[in-house]
């Protein structure tokens, strides 16, 4: 109860702050850059619309500055939702290491509010609902924050176009985005979006003190029907030299997943 009150208060604050910020860019940034930034982000988002559902196998490789590494594997299932007010539903099902095999995390993403999350622990044979007021936290000890890997819906950020430049064999639009999420670990991000695929090629993350702390690089893009998917995401932490690779294989689309599969009660039956 207290919590809800607090959150609503925060939202009000965010609204006020948002309104204020919406005015200030007029003074400092050209309105057309803000407009262009939003257009690029929207275009990027739209190219991905209509995939319905997908599954993929992800291998997560963690590396530290000393060169040691460890890996785990999980299957990620996604169900697209067409409303712009809510994000997609996802399930992450861990298959290795053995001691967490069968552990599944279900998220119902919201745009700026807290996601609903459930976790199924096979050792306990129970589903627990968990609070996820902490999107800024790392995803299972990796260099990816939870907020880095959830769906990047347009409404989560404010945008500003910075420049166009060559990236690899294509041209990229570079946009700056500022999180609307009060508890975000970042002050801003710079995103390179390829004009060929309209998918991100690189994202630079800036912490709350304004330092460039992490860089995420997308590589190995492949087209599945009309949808582009990166084969590998590499997040490098510039501060501590640690990095995490997310390597995707087995992309499948329209596999027939439905809302029923993305209910907390369904987690137990996943294998």
């Amino acid at each position: 109860m207290l919590n809800q009150f607090r959150q609503s208060k925060r939202k009000t604050l965010a609204l006020v702050a948002g309104a204020f910020l919406a005015v200030t860019p007029l003074a400092s940034y050209a309105q057309e850059d803000v407009q262009k930034g939003l257009e690029i982000a929207t275009r990027s988002d739209v190219t991905d619309n209509g995939f319905g559902d997908s599954t993929a196998t992800a291998q997560m490789v963690l590396r530290n500055a000393a060169g040691q590494s460890s890996s785990r594997e999980l299957v990620i299932m996604t169900l697209e939702r067409n409303s712009s007010k809510v994000g997609d539903k996802t399930i992450s099902l861990f298959s290795t290491p053995a001691d967490i095999k069968g552990t599944a995390v279900l998220s119902h993403a919201k745009i700026t509010g807290n996601d609903d999350q459930w976790i199924y622990l096979p050792a306990l044979k129970r589903v627990k609902r968990i609070s996820s007021s902490n999107k800024s936290g790392p995803f299972v000890g990796s260099e990816f924050a939870y907020e880095d890997i959830t769906a990047q819906e347009v409404g989560k950020f404010d945008y500003r176009w910075i420049k166009s430049e060559k990236c690899g064999g294509a041209t990229c639009e570079v946009i700056e985005r500022t999180p609307n999420y009060a508890k975000s670990g970042y002050s801003r991000q710079l995103v390179w979006i390829s004009t060929k695929t309209w998918q991100p090629e690189q994202i630079q993350f800036f912490d709350r003190a304004g330092n460039h702390v992490k860089t995420l690089t997308y590589s190995g893009y492949k087209q599945y029907g009309k949808f582009w998917r990166a084969g590998k995401l590499t997040m490098v932490n510039l501060r501590n030299g640690k990095s995490t690779d997310l390597i995707f294989t087995d992309w499948k689309f329209s596999t027939g997943l439905s809302d029923r599969d993305f209910k907390s009660s369904a987690l137990e039956d996943l294998r």
Partner: peptide, 30 residues
Amino acid sequence: SPELAAQYLLLYELSLPFGLDLNNQINIDK
């Protein structure tokens, strides 16, 4: 059991905010 501990740990790691992770207490391959 080790599974129980591992899964608790995974759950806990999923719920920690920015900068409050366990990387300063646990090494990379656990």
